[in-house]
Simulated assay, not measured.
Amino acid sequence: MYVAEPLKKLALLGATKNLIKISSAEFAQYTTTSSKTAARLLKKLEDDRYIERRLVPGGQKIILTCNGIELLRKEYDEYQRIFCGDGEDIELYGQVVAGLGEGQYYISQNSYMLQFSEKLGFQPFPGTLNIKLNENSVSILQRMDCIQPVCIQGFNDAERTFGAGKCYPIKIDGVKSAIIVPERTHYPTNLLEIIAPVNLREKLHLKDGDEVKIVVEKKDKREG
């Protein structure tokens, strides 16, 4: 059997982050094989260092190794090229609008700032630029499924919980920035919040009503 397929089954069961307990008979149901074949398959994945496995009563505890995760990541990238193509960067257009003044409070949280610096390569200005997309760009926005996001983890402090979110690296007039999409938001789908290492309003001399172009870069171009 193709190695990526059983790895995908294990990943869907949560084995990318945590040890999962599963018997060979249970795994056989996910791979449509016999229990003996499933047991041999798990042993091969272990021998090839795609998983770490610890035998326990009633089965085994399994977690994917870095090699296993990397193999799935390569598989993911190939499917992206199949279904999304290697075409031009995605361009979105919209107008600058006033925000609700909440961005500065959330962006300034230290646990967020550390993740932004590590994962986006910049420490954001404490505030967001709000863009209201035009109708055509809203329809294009569904293509964002073809762009691999940068995941920002939520956290708890002594007083409250701060939610997770996703970031999409972009450029606005050549300035490296990112769209930030909170896991839970009350904003409409046509309103984007953008973070950048500078105050974009001042840097680009923007005011409410000005039209801007947002260039969403494909992952392979970002890495270049």
Rank of each mutant, 00 (worst) to 15 (best):
I20V: 11
I20T: 05
L114V: 06
L192G: 09
I180Q: 02
I131F: 00
F125Y: 15
V150S: 01
R222H: 09
L206N: 14
S137K: 10
H186T: 15
A98H: 10
G58S: 05
F116R: 04
L120Y: 00
T33H: 05
Y79W: 11
G99C: 03
Y79S: 10
G85R: 05
G165K: 08
E135H: 00
H205T: 13
L114N: 11
T33P: 01
C84H: 10
N67M: 07
E5R: 12
L64W: 04
K43G: 02
G163N: 14
R40F: 09
Y187V: 12
Q80R: 14
E118G: 01
Q123T: 13
I194H: 07
L141F: 12
E26I: 00
I69P: 03
I62W: 00
C66E: 14
E193C: 04
F116K: 04
L42P: 06
K74H: 12
A158I: 06
Q142H: 09
P197N: 13
S177W: 07
G163A: 13
E135Y: 00
Y76W: 09
S137H: 09
Y30F: 15
P197Q: 07
N67D: 14
Y168Q: 06
G59R: 10
S177F: 08
A98K: 13
I152N: 01
V56C: 01
Q153G: 01
S108E: 07
Y106W: 14
K176W: 13
E88G: 03
C84W: 11
R73N: 12
L191C: 08
G103A: 15
L204Y: 11
G58K: 07
G14Q: 09
I63H: 03
L206S: 15
V138E: 08
Q80N: 11
A39K: 11
Q80W: 01
E223Q: 13
L72G: 02
L13H: 02
K74M: 11
L55M: 10
N199G: 08
I82Q: 09
T189G: 06
E211P: 05
G127M: 08
R184I: 14
I152E: 00
A98E: 12
A4L: 10
Q142P: 00
L120S: 01
K61T: 10
I194A: 07
I194E: 10
L72M: 06
G101L: 07
E46D: 13
E118L: 01
R54C: 01
E26G: 02
G165F: 14
C167D: 05
Q123E: 10
I172Q: 07
K17T: 09
L45K: 06
K17H: 08
I195C: 07
L41K: 11
P169L: 05
K44H: 07
E91K: 15
I90T: 08
L129Y: 03
L64V: 05
L192V: 09
V216Y: 02
L10H: 11
P197W: 06
G68D: 05
F162S: 06
P169A: 02
I62N: 01
I147A: 03
R54A: 08
T65F: 05
E159N: 12
R160A: 15
L141E: 10
S34W: 03
C167M: 13
L10V: 10
K9Q: 13
F27S: 04
I194T: 11
E118P: 00
G85E: 09
C84G: 15
L42E: 10
F83I: 12
N130G: 03
P169D: 07
H186E: 15
F155D: 02
